[in-house]
């Protein structure tokens, strides 16, 4: 373990502080469509630009031509595992009891992707495998990324 050492052993005055705010973020124009669809229908949609590019999660503007993505198209629940990792520590530096399996899932013909937990046997996992999102039961869904429980092997 790393241990902090002060150069000199001195009495160092200090004052504790914090930024006393919390945040309520709007999902946005495209985000409302995307998460409302997860909540109500249990699948992913992409936003589509008139130039043909599709974005998931849905975004309002096209990175390619800067047009407004006004159309939304159904993508479903299946994607492809683009990369994955096994995580041992949380953001506070505490060790997990069980390592977390995290993946980046991409969708056919779509820009972007979704980062989420995976529930896949270690001996079966491989980059490029087909995966499928598992959602909470509809009544428990609130319209957030936490409505997705995890991705499993398809």
């Amino acid at each position: 373990m790393y241990k902090e050492k002060l150069e000199k052993n001195i009495e160092c005055g200090s004052f504790p502080g914090q930024i006393p705010v919390n945040y309520v973020y709007t999902l946005g124009i495209a985000g409302d469509e995307f998460f409302r669809t997860i909540r109500d229908k249990g699948y992913f949609i992409a936003s589509k630009c008139s130039c043909g590019k599709k974005y998931i999660p849905a975004q309002m503007y096209c990175d390619e031509c800067f047009g407004e993505c006004k159309e939304y198209v159904k993508v479903g629940t299946e994607g492809e595992l683009y990369s994955y990792t096994e995580c041992y520590y949380d953001y506070r530096g505490n060790k997990y009891d069980e390592p977390h399996l995290l993946g980046l899932v991409k969708f056919r013909d779509c820009e972007g992707g979704i980062i989420h937990r995976l529930k896949i046997n270690k001996d079966e996992i491989r980059i490029g495998m087909k995966v499928e999102a598992v959602f909470k039961p509809q009544k428990q869904r609130t319209g957030s990324v936490e409505d997705i429980l995890y991705f499993k092997k398809k």
Partner: peptide, 12 residues
Amino acid sequence: RRAQETGPELAY
């Protein structure tokens, strides 16, 4: 006072 748009959407 409060926009539905996200920051990037407003910028867009």
